[in-house]
Design a protein around this nucleic acid. Structure first.
Lengths: 103, 103
DNA sequence: TATATATATCAAGATATCTTGATATATATA
DNA sequence: TATATATATCAAGATATCTTGATATATATA
């Protein structure tokens, strides 16, 4: 129940839906890529990424001073069905705008 | 997007999950059945039923002075997958306690 | 070693959601 | 017709969530 509600509340926010979809179509990105693409302040992005990660949608890979976020793989069937549904929503996300000189 | 968020926010609440699951296993029930089974005040139940109905999970059938709520049928694939996931959660709901002389 | 960069976290104010109690409306019954 | 019952809706206070700006931490570079 708590895990289910954590999963649901994580996608109950327009900003997080956009971030999740953005990562879904762009693959692995770092925080400042999202920061620059969406033109949102970093603390806001970081907070939403943490929520999506804790809800089981994202994983992080820290390399150097960067944190690279991507869709967790494998994703269980329920989260997959959610992601599929989100993909059908015609969400407007910005182009990827790499904001830092990473690898 | 708005419809998706309305669907998601409707299940982002423990009380509504319980009510939805309760209707799922008991079939058609009226508001006072839920009121008596859950021992919650009527305005609270009414509000949550409206949210679940507006989100596409429930339908109402008004007969006499009663409003009978049940799972909307047919239910689209996404809401079905949500309902299926909720069914696996081992949610504790009270026994059906009919609180009014209907039917 | 000093500085710059990337990220995470916290506090405070703003906004949204939930619960309760009061009230309005519609229908059934005396 | 008057009263009781079932339900919906509203206002107000309580609680949760979101955004911003400040700050802490870790790593890379000069």
């Amino acid at each position: 129940m708590e895990i289910f509600l954590k999963t649901i509340s994580s996608i109950n926010d327009e900003t997080r839906l956009k971030i999740l979809y953005f990562i879904h179509i762009n693959g692995e990105v770092c925080v400042c890529d999202i920061e620059n693409s969406f033109e949102m302040i970093q603390s806001r992005i970081s907070r939403h990424l943490k929520i999506l990660k804790d809800a089981g949608f994202l994983k992080v890979d820290r390399r150097g001073r960067w944190a690279f976020y991507s869709i967790r793989d494998p994703l269980d069937e329920f989260r997959q069905s959610i992601l599929k549904e989100i993909s059908c929503l015609d969400i407007q996300v910005p182009m990827l705008n790499k904001g830092c000189k990473n690898g």
